[in-house]
Design a protein around this nucleic acid. Sequence first.
DNA 1: CATGTTATGTCTATCTTTATACAAAATGAC
DNA 2: GTCATTTTGTATAAAGATAGACATAACATG
Lengths: 416, 416
Amino acid sequence: MARPVQAPDRPTLEGAGGIFSLIATGSAVSRAELLAASGLSRATVTQRLNALLASGLVRETEETLPSGGRPTRVLAINATSGFLLVANVGETHIHLAAMDLTPAILSQTTLPISVASGPDATLKQIGEAFAALAAGAEKTHGFLLGIGLSLPTPVDFKRGCVVGPSVLPGWDEFDIIGRLNVGFSVPVYVENDVNLMTICEHKRRVPTVEDMLFVKVGTGIGSGMIAGGRLFRGAQGAAGDIGHIQFLSDDAPLCRCGKFGCVEARAAGWAIARDLSSRGFRAETARDVLDLVEQRKPEALMLLRAAGRTVGEVISDVVSIINPSLIVVGGTLARGGDLLLSGIRELVYQRCLPLATRNLSIELSTIRDDSALYGAAHLMLDDIFAPTKTGELLARYGAAAASTHPQAPTRATTGT
Amino acid sequence: MARPVQAPDRPTLEGAGGIFSLIATGSAVSRAELLAASGLSRATVTQRLNALLASGLVRETEETLPSGGRPTRVLAINATSGFLLVANVGETHIHLAAMDLTPAILSQTTLPISVASGPDATLKQIGEAFAALAAGAEKTHGFLLGIGLSLPTPVDFKRGCVVGPSVLPGWDEFDIIGRLNVGFSVPVYVENDVNLMTICEHKRRVPTVEDMLFVKVGTGIGSGMIAGGRLFRGAQGAAGDIGHIQFLSDDAPLCRCGKFGCVEARAAGWAIARDLSSRGFRAETARDVLDLVEQRKPEALMLLRAAGRTVGEVISDVVSIINPSLIVVGGTLARGGDLLLSGIRELVYQRCLPLATRNLSIELSTIRDDSALYGAAHLMLDDIFAPTKTGELLARYGAAAASTHPQAPTRATTGT
DNA sequence: CATGTTATGTCTATCTTTATACAAAATGAC
DNA sequence: GTCATTTTGTATAAAGATAGACATAACATG
């Protein structure tokens, strides 16, 4: 009955997933908290934590929290024990980065994109840039743990593909995961950019808020929702698509979607640029509009404020429907200061029932160009470090740790 | 070190919560499925299941599922091992029932309600009626497990109280749970009636649908949402409040909320009744409108169809925002056949992007007057039988079972 | 009625986890 | 410096859970 006993003295990583997940998600920062949060016994927690510390995945920070007695030693995921590759595909450029587990950007590149070149060529470009970034990151940050792709279109997150026609011709239903897995054998996550900005906003600024709405007002208009603390995607991943809600009127302008009176056609960057152009200004994108606003041109200020009221009209509908406790307004036009915001506030407080606005705050985003990248990283880390999934992850690290010993070669345990 | 060993031969219910929950929620119907779903070993499952069977909480049905070999014995919660008390407070009547764990109605009563009498008097009435129902149910159905209250107003489910002014004067912030706990020491659940109808519709008809919308078109208009398989309540429990979304126009009618142009003021039962009255018909409630529709009065038919288009306008907004895969239309006016539905469909398919309507179906509710009661029962059972909560429940049953033996008295292990 | 097939109960040695107690460590308050 | 206080590690016996083999049960099929 001699079974091949494997390294009986080395503590095993098996079963440490729960502990690891608690640390990774920030649910527990100290051993004492781990005890309480995991429900396991002191001895078990100590044993598993030691395995994690030995593997290098978790480290003890220098930071301590005063507690009246012996201070708490703060535990944290070792940010250098792995890295992620993320890419944000925009309409003109692709922003790529390698990120550690903080998450923070380790290195980044920008590629020009020819929208017309289609998914296959574009993903090839991305794959090559990823390979270069990975080569640098691997030297100091161990394994590649996942790949994230941010796209400016509706995405079916579960299947990992674009759904419906969009600004990216040829991407509809294209097998992105399959294409990227050719070069990398790690999980690939694909998500809509506004959803990722929503996650970034939520995770980094107001992680305790349960129900919030993020509205992006840029060249186009879109939104993302956190419902019950989690991103809400809807049946096809099209939830939050508020840009093409219609308000009919006699002068309803034609939208780029082919309908009349959409919110976008009234208040998006391209619509304001259109109106400014007809008044003799030179404007095409949201950026141009913002420039004119910053020059304090009265027409631009007026149109931005009016756009705020239009967006406020839709947002008031959204507030009635999902009853958030926080609305964050971001995107290029949100940098125009409080003009957009005041228009939004005006309509929301006018239209919604007091119950819904009683505890509602409406704020400007702390804008960052790379919020989609951070959002993607958070999304990935949450999934990679989910309690049910840490098993295979730790198996990989365990295998790697073993291979540093003069032992059997390792093999990835993940399927497909 | 002699510790008081308690009945070493009798299997313990401790730890059986997970098993019980799997059976109660229908996640596993046989021993084989329990094995797979729980991840526990065969011996452990057998032991715990035996404890549950011995306690009478779970029973083996006569039903078997063919499997090619020895057929699967189907397990089920013993519907007679406990009961619930539920009450649906309407604007004119209160419908009360004792329900078993199927859930099915065991016995029921109806009380008239004087809206003006306030929460204290009304809850006293309800408490007395509950006591009578409980007396009957206790003879055959063991313990009372929980109390559910359905109210026609926005409710903060977590705190268990009405929020905001409503058709029930004096109920705002009233401590309902505290009041009902005077007579009964079981968990009390308070929820909005439309949310409960949504749960009923979801659980009984389409339990696998992840994202759906239920719209009630009766004397008023409201909606409930299932997002990611769970009821979505929003920050204050006011999610789904679509009745007072405004559509401005020159002839915007005055709403009972004080604003102009609300959906309710255009399409609710009371609004149609108002329009019919001005055309010489005698109508006041949704019921009256339905009568005229069933008499095929052209004016009533026309107005109902127009109402459908108005409701369709809001619903199209909701579809853009939350992207459900199913919309169920219920309420009194939904009994008017396809008239309302066709108006809704017309607008939704006209207004929404193809992506959102591609897999969307819009159906009539299988109407039942008591769907709020059933919804309340499902809501309660899901919570009472949640894996984390079955521990104390089983402790109670264990105590009851022990006290029937001539043994040492048992003591509840739960705190407070 | 024999056979194949799947479901279910039970046994045993082995491994995990727990409870509990005790000891050591690291700080602030005095 | 001493003391109270809280965090953290470890040792021990007892309880709990597992794997995996085996036996039995209950049906469909031919």
